[in-house]
Each structure stands twice: as C-alpha cells, then as structure tokens.
Design a protein around this nucleic acid. Structure first.
Lengths: 217, 217
DNA sequence: GCTCATGTTGCACTCGGTGCAACTTGTGCA
DNA sequence: TGCACAAGTTGCACCGAGTGCAACATGAGC
C-alpha cells in the first residue's frame, strides 16, 4: 500500500495507525457501553472488540472510563478550537456562545448520548467532570498567556484580581455549559433527534446569557 | 463506660462509634498523604494506621481517594448548612458569599491543605471535582423543591428556562468557589496561616462578586 | 442475661493498571 | 531494494482496588 499522493500533509503512516486504533478502541467501548452498561464489560472486552491486546488498550486509555470520556474531550477540544478562532476583541461570553454551539451535529449528538449513558456510574461521572475541568484549564492557560503578552513584558504575569476574574469567568462559562447539558438531559432524556439537539443548542446559548447579565432573574 | 448523662441527644453508642471510626480512617489517610504522597500508601496502610481491617476501610470509603475527598465534602456540607440558614428572600449570590466563608477556620484550613495535596494526582482530583459537583446537585435539589412549593401545587415542577436558570446559577457559584481556591493556591501554595486563609475568604467573596455583576470587567 | 440487629473481619476472587522484555511494523538511509 | 533503527504491540507477571460471603463480635432492647 504505497502512499496515495494528495491531501496527506505531514501525517505519517504511524500517526494514521495510532489515530485509527484510538478511534476503534473508543468506538468499541461506546458500543459495549450502549449494549451492557458501564458495569457490563471489562477492559478485556473492549480490547477484543477493537482487535487489540488488553495491554495496548491501556497504552491508549488509562481506563475504560477514560475511553468513554474521550468523546466529551473531543467535543470540548473543538469548542476550544472554535473559541480561539473568534476575534480577540469580542467579549468572551459572546465567543463562548458561538464556540459551544459551533460544532458538528454528530459531535454534539455523541456528547449528549455519552452524557446520558454516564448517569448512574460514579467513576464515569468523575471522568466526565475531569474532561470539562481540563477544558477550563486549557482555556485559562491560553487566554492567560494572551493577556500576559498584551500586558507587556515588565510585569511578571497578572495581578491577583485579574487572575481571579479570569479563572472565575472561564470556570463559570464551563459550568453553564454543563448546566445546559444537564437540563437538556432532564427534559429530553435519550432523545438525540435533530430537533432535540437544536433545543440543546438553545439551552447552551441561554445559559451563557444568564451568566452575562449576572443572573438578575 | 456508662452513658454520661448530659448533651447526648438521640446519638446511640453505635452511631458514635461509626462516626469515630470514620474520622479515624479519614485522619489516618490524610496523615499518610502528607507523609508519603498519594502513590505512597495503600488502602491496607490506611486501615492499619486507623486500627481497622482493610475490609472495614472499604465499608466506610469506596477508595483511598474518597477518604481524602471527605474533607472537602465536610467543608461543602457546612456551606450547604450555612446557606440554608440564610433568609430565603436574600439574593442567592449574597447568601453564597456568606455561606462560603462562614465556616470554622480549621475546616477551611483542611480544605486548603487537601486541595494543595491533591495537585498532581489525577484520580484524587476527580474525587475532589465530584465533591464540588455533589454540592451543586444538593443545592439545586433543595432550592428546586423550595421553589416548587412556593409556586403552588398545580404546575408540575418548573419551566425549562427557570430550571436552566437555577442550574446555571448554582453551578456557576460553585465554579467561582473552586476558582477562588485555585487562585488562592497558585499564590499562597501550601501556606495555611490565618493571614493566608483570610486572603482565601476575600477571594471567595470577590469571585461571587464578579459573578454578580456579570463579569463586566 | 438473653436475643436480635448491626457492624467487623478474613477469605477468595475479579478486574484495573503497570513495568518489563520479546517481538513486529513503519521509517530513513545507503 | 534491502538494512538498521525507532516506534508500537503483545504476553507475562505482579500489585492493589474493590466486592460478595460467611463467621464472628458488639451494642440495643427487653
């Protein structure tokens, strides 16, 4: 199988293989979760279903829960990506509204489905929380370094109140994102239809809207 | 050891024993965490240090991480307690400022210390996140049922937008709480002195303050 | 002091998670 | 094209988390 000329840019064969294996494992885990629930399968099962050894499974994911949470990670990674594409002078809360909703429908559907499937399993819930929190940290780090550059080189970083402002703001945004998904789930349950997902998008925007006006009921 | 007459109200001997054992286990876990770091001890070690069997340890905590996170739980439980003592017509954000800071200094110190010790261990971090999230859920449930009662018996619950408002608000409050602790740690590291803790209290109030004015920098 | 409920313990077992050493596969270069 | 090295996979052995179960100990109620 020679290298098909064309769109392959800097992606070596190895990287492609790794990405494919990773996706195969995650997909197998999701399949098993759908069919058996979180306590209905083991890391062995996932490895077999994905056609790799148990040891290789753990080379890619630190646990079965991590494999499932990777879907949430993926969604949030594209949110970050979208966020960084917004104009830097746009208010952050506005950027957030766009970024949270500017994702492929399939990604949003998977986010919603895995969120639904997560209910009832404590350890998986923790991994989901971790994914949202990692997203916060990444955004804070990115914006923080942006501001540090803009502020000039003399000052060592930011003042405490600015740092608090940034952390509180970003974490609140993420909290509102989670709240929206939560409320959506409480109303629509497992319904992943386009109409239902459109409702989720609305909720995401509304939640940030509440945040913007300081929750003045 | 006969029952010392006096302040013992409805607390049976069994309950006292259980509470004492639970505290002993949690204290032993914290001690080992301080001395060896999270990967430096096992559930066995904690059990031995607390004078119980390994099996009993797991009767009280689902994992070593859960034992440590119980300190955060305790802090957040008293926050909830304080929150419910506030007048019901007080704005929630104001109540939150009081509740987050109206705790015993020792509890705040332990919260801060365990937060510091948590850095660097992924699984323990997840348990801490879970503790904060459980706090959100409890507050949402409590306030939700309050409002349901006040709204009258005819309507089945709350409208979607009200529910979103409640979830987003409470989760943002908790997010600001975490943000304050995080920023405090980035500045004060392991410093648990009263002065440092006073600074933490200020940060908690400021963070909610930012939230109240919609982060209009 | 007897009885029952509640809590503790040891045992055995499953599964998550990891270091290690052998092996296979892709990459770069002559 | 083939050779040598790097990177990835696998099996193996091991440790520790977590749980069901059955025997035992302890406090509650009478």
């Amino acid at each position: 199988m020679t290298t098909t000329a064309g769109d392959s840019i800097t992606v070596s064969r190895r990287e492609l293989n790794k990405a494919a294996t990773r996706e195969a494992i995650a997909a197998a885990a999701l399949e098993l979760l759908r069919a058996n629930g979180m306590n209905g399968f083991t890391a062995d099962d996932v490895a077999n279903a994905a056609g790799v050894s148990r040891r290789t499974f753990f080379n890619y994911f630190s646990s079965p829960e991590a494999a499932i949470a990777s879907f949430t990670q993926k969604y949030l990674d594209t949110v970050i990506e979208q966020l960084l594409l917004r104009p830097q002078d746009e208010p952050l809360l506005e950027s957030a509204q766009h970024a949270l909703t500017a994702v492929a429908p399939s990604d949003l559907a998977t986010l919603a489905e895995t969120f639904a499937l997560t209910q009832g399993d404590a350890q998986l819930s923790r991994f989901q929380l971790e994914a949202w929190d990692n997203c916060s940290s990444q955004i804070i780090a990115t914006i923080g370094s942006r501001l540090a550059v803009r502020e000039g080189e003399g000052s060592s970083g930011m003042d405490v109140n600015g740092e608090l402002y940034l952390h509180a703001l970003v974490q609140s945004v993420i909290a509102c994102g989670r709240a929206a998904v939560e409320v959506w789930f409480r109303r629509h349950g497992e319904d992943i239809s386009p109409a239902s997902l459109a409702r989720l998008r609305e909720l995401l925007v509304s939640a940030i809207g509440h945040l913007r006006d300081g929750f003045h009921s």
